[in-house]
Every structure is written in structure tokens, then in C-alpha cells.
Design a binder for these strands. Structure first.
Lengths: 106, 106
DNA sequence: AAGTTATATAACTGTATTATTATATAAATA
DNA sequence: TATTTATATAATAATACAGTTATATAACTT
């Protein structure tokens, strides 16, 4: 699975948001996501870890998950490729952005 | 489906790469992706369109697909949120980047 | 040592995604 | 007008994904 797939899941993106506040244990994360089970939380955290989006520190039985930039850097590098494209046609970018605002987006 | 899901598929990312060179018709795209069928190409293009990643121009029976920045801007905005986080800990970002290079990434 | 706490993994299920083949639609051409 | 060209959609099958419950593992506490 790629980092693209990792951030494609809305729950995982929400998890990154929570971890951006501060590092948390699995138990903390389970509390922060009451609609899903503990195993589901653990599996999401595993995916985030496998894609360089979080790191884990061990403290006794606890695992402390922290946001890690690696995976996000990979995503950013990918987008940067297209920013070059945008800069070539900045005028139409402006046009698209304002049009999108009117349409209400996604 | 979100723009995150749209770019999660490797074939669709490859399609964006091809369209970044220049706009193409569906037939062009089918030729560029010989391992998948025409309907598969059409469906991928539809997803890209629905998520603001491409636009279509009609020319007789042909549909000319072009790269559009909208969706990528949405992605970039999302990542920007985390860049703030990174800037708070730029030192560890540097460390992570060099470590990632050694590991060979994904 | 026995029980509790914290987390991960296994087995499984339902749903979503991606692909295929067949077919529909629409415009150009002979 | 009949045929060809270009593309989209429908029906369907295979695979991937996210969730569940049950259970294993490891460390702390009593």
C-alpha cells in the first residue's frame, strides 16, 4: 500500500489531525475515535506507520504514536511535480480556483 | 469519492503524468495504457474529472482531456496544514529525510 | 503467581474498487 | 443512409479494504 492509499481513508486523515496536536497512546486514540473498535484503530495506526506518517515509541505496555513527516514529504514531492505545471499556466489556475469556489467544491 | 482516493490509484497517477505532458483524447490515453481496456481508461478519466483533476473539451466524437489544478490544489492545501507542523520541528524533518533515503522508501 | 492493562494479530464479513466483456450513443464518413 | 470511429455506460466478476469479534502477547500491579 502506498502513502497515497494511506491518506485516502478519512479516518486515517482524522487520526493524523489528532496526532498533529500531540503524540498519543493507542488507548488515547481509541478514546478519540469512539465509533470504531480498538483493533480498527491499531490497524489504521499500523498503516500510517508503514507509510512513514507516524512513528512509535514504546513505554512499558504503551505505544506512543507521533506524527512523522516522511510520508507527507513524499506526498508533497509528488504534488511539487505538478506545481511546475501550474506555474506555467498560473492565469488559468486563478480562474479554476474562483470557479471552484462558486461550484462549492467537493 | 475524494481527491485523495482519486490519486490513490497508481494508474490514475500515471494518467496525470501523461496528461501533464499535453492534453490527450481517450484514444490517446488507451494507447498510452495498453495493459487496460478502453472502458477502464474511460472510468479512470471520469474519476479524475469528478475530482477536479482534469477537464474535458469536446471535439466532434472526441473528448480531449487536460490536466486541471483544482484537485491538486485541494491536496496541496491539506498538506500545507502539516507543513506548519513540520516547520515547528524542522530539525527532525531533516533527519527523517536523510533516514528515508537510506531505507529506500516505498 | 494471578490478575489486569495495553496493544496487536487472526479469522472472518460486508462493502468498495477495479477490471472485464458487451452494448449504447453520438458524430463523422463513404 | 449504412458504416465506421470515438467514447461512455451496464452488467458482472475478482480483488482490496475497513470493520468486527475473539484471542494472543507482553508488561505492570497486587
Amino acid at each position: 500500500m502506498s502513502v497515497f492509499t494511506a491518506v485516502a481513508d478519512p479516518t486515517r486523515r482524522a487520526m493524523l489531525d489528532v496526532l498533529a496536536e500531540h503524540s498519543r497512546t493507542v488507548t488515547d486514540m481509541v478514546a478519540a475515535f469512539p465509533t470504531i473498535s480498538q483493533p480498527a484503530v491499531s490497524k489504521h495506526l499500523r498503516v500510517l506507520k508503514e507509510n512513514g506518517l507516524v512513528t512509535v515509541q514504546i513505554n512499558a505496555q504503551q505505544r506512543i504514536y507521533s506524527l512523522q513527516p516522511n510520508g507527507l514529504v513524499e506526498l508533497d514531492n509528488w504534488i511539487s511535480k505538478y506545481k511546475l505545471f501550474w506555474s506555467k499556466r498560473l492565469d488559468s489556475l486563478e480562474e479554476h480556483l474562483s470557479k471552484n469556489k462558486e461550484e462549492g467544491g467537493i
